[in-house]
Design a protein around this nucleic acid. Structure first.
Lengths: 260, 260
DNA sequence: ATCTTTCATTCGATATAGTGAATACTATTC
DNA sequence: GAATAGTATTCACTATATCGAATGAAAGAT
C-alpha cells in the first residue's frame, strides 16, 4: 500500500521534506495503532534514515508523539491545536453552525457545512445532527471527492466549469448507483434551475443528499450546506421544502460572510 | 515578533523544512486574517523564496489554502482532517468523554480531559460543560504550560520528578497569584497525599481548578481529568467531594485504558 | 545460551534544497 | 500616464539534506 501521491509530490518540489512529512502524518492518522520507523518507511517508500530525520523534526514540533519505550510513533496533540486555530479563524464554520442546527432539528436530518477547495475534495467543517432513532453521522474534518453526490452537482452547476472538462473527473467517481454522464449533466442543469441539488440514492443506496451553494466573495461557491437523510424519510414534497430551506440558509450565510 | 524557537529548531535539524513549515502553520493559525508571502517570511525571519517553496509544498498537501486573487495564505482544511483522525485514534478522548460529561452535570463545573506530553505543555483533548449561567469554557486543542495550576501539581506529584529540577521551569510560569516555591512544594506533597490537586485562585483569580491523574501504561501520568469552576461556587466541602469524584473518574479511565 | 532476524541509528559522499540577487509583476502615488 | 514602492517569482551557485551502506541494539528462534 505505497502512497503513489508521494512520488509525484516529492519530485520537482523544492521542499520534499514537507511532502514526506505530510504523508507520514496521513499514514499515522490512517493507522489504528502506533507504528515503528521501519513500517512507516516501507509503506511510504522512504529511506529509513530520512524517515527518521523527518519523524524527529515532527516530534520536535509535537505533531507526532513517540512512545519511548516501544519506539512507536503516532499523531501528536499539535494537530489538534492547529485545528482549533483553524476553526477559530474561519467565519463560515461559526456562521453556518446555527443555521445547520436549525435545519437539522426542523427536518430531522443530519446537516453539514462543507468547504469546497478546488475540484478535488470537500471537507466537512461543521455538523449538526437532528433527532431520530437512526441518524447518519459524520465528523468535522471528514473529506469527500468534490464532484460526488449533491455537492458535486452544486459545484458543477454553479462553479462556471465546462461540463466536458469535468467529464474525466466524473468518470473516476465511485457511487453505489452511478448515473451516466448524460443523466448527470441533466441533473446539473436541473440543479442550476432550482438553486439546490438533490441526490436520491445515487451516492449511497437508500440515502438522500441535498446541497445548496454558499459564496464567500467570488462567483464560484466556496462552501455548501448539505443535508443527509434516509430516502424513505423524505418524500418529494419534503425534499422540495428542505431544498428551499437549504437555499434560504445558504443565502443567509452568504450574506453574513459578505459583511466581514 | 520573530519566532525564536524557529532558529534553534532549524539549526542542527536534518529536516529544517519541517520546522519552517510548522512555524508557518502556527503563524497562520495565530493570525486573524490571511497573510501574504512577504509578511510571513519577515515575521519568521525566513528568506522569501524559501518561504514560497515551503508554502507551495503545504498548499500541495492542503494544509494551507491560497486565495489566488489576493495571494494571501491561510490554514487549509487538511489540518481538520488530521485532527479528526487524531481524535478517532486516541482511546483516551472517547473513554474520558462520558466521565467528563457526568462530572460536569453532577457538579455544574467545566471538565476537560488533557494529554500530558512531557514537562512542556498539556493539550485539552475532550471538553464537557455543565449547566449554569456563567461557565468557564475552553475548546479541544487548547494548550497550557504543563506545570501550571492543578494539573501542574499532579505532574509534579506523580511524575516521579525531583522537585529541585522542576524549579527552573516553575520559575517561568505566569500566574495571577503566583505561589512561592516553598508553598508550591507543600501543595505538591498534599496532592500526592490526597490523590488529586486543587488550585484555588492561584492560576486565575477567582477560579478553582482541580485535577486527578490518569495513567496509560507507565508509572508517570499520561493524561489528567480537570475540573474548573468559579471559586465562589465551590466551598471546601464541595471541593472535597469533587476531588474524590475526579479521582474515581480518573481511576475508571485508567482501568479502561489498560484493557486495550 | 547462541544464532538469526529485524529493528533503530550513525556516518560519509553527493545530489539537491536553500539562498540571495535579479526579474517580472501589480498596486499606489505623483 | 510615468514613476515609485511594493509584491511575487525565477534562477544559478553552494552549503547541506538525503541516501545507502555499515553499525549497534534488541527481539525471536533454535
Amino acid at each position: 500500500m505505497k502512497d503513489r501521491s508521494l512520488d509525484t509530490a516529492v519530485k520537482d518540489s523544492k521542499a520534499p521534506a514537507i511532502a514526506r512529512a505530510a504523508a507520514i502524518l496521513r499514514l499515522l492518522g490512517r493507522s489504528e495503532v502506533p507504528k515503528g520507523l521501519q513500517p512507516i518507511a516501507r509503506e511510504l517508500g522512504l529511506v529509513p534514515s530520512t524517515c527518521l530525520y523527518v519523524l524527529r523534526a515532527l516530534l520536535e514540533e509535537e505533531l507526532v508523539s513517540l512512545d519511548t519505550a516501544t519506539k512507536r510513533y503516532s499523531l501528536g496533540p499539535g494537530v489538534l491545536s492547529l485545528a482549533r486555530h483553524w476553526l477559530h479563524r474561519d467565519p463560515f464554520a461559526s456562521l453556518a453552525q446555527p443555521v445547520l442546527n436549525d435545519l437539522a432539528t426542523r427536518f430531522a436530518v443530519t446537516c453539514i457545512g462543507v468547504e469546497i477547495s478546488g475540484l478535488d475534495r470537500i471537507t466537512a467543517v461543521a455538523v449538526a445532527e437532528g433527532a431520530g432513532n437512526f441518524r447518519l453521522s459524520t465528523e468535522v474534518g471528514s473529506r469527500f471527492p468534490a464532484l460526488l453526490s449533491a455537492t458535486g452537482r452544486c459545484i458543477a452547476a454553479f462553479g462556471g466549469h465546462d461540463m466536458e472538462r469535468l467529464r474525466p473527473r466524473f468518470e473516476k467517481l465511485r457511487w453505489d448507483n452511478p448515473p451516466d454522464f448524460a443523466l448527470w449533466s441533466e441533473q446539473v442543469l436541473e440543479t442550476r434551475a432550482q438553486g439546490y441539488a438533490a441526490d436520491v440514492g445515487h451516492y449511497i443506496a437508500g440515502v438522500t443528499v441535498m446541497a445548496a451553494p454558499v459564496y464567500r466573495t467570488s462567483e464560484t461557491p466556496s462552501h455548501a450546506l448539505v443535508a443527509l437523510a434516509l430516502s424513505r424519510t423524505l418524500d418529494e414534497k419534503a425534499r422540495l421544502r428542505l431544498g428551499k430551506a437549504l437555499v434560504g440558509g445558504a443565502q443567509t450565510v452568504t450574506r453574513q460572510l459578505g459583511d466581514m
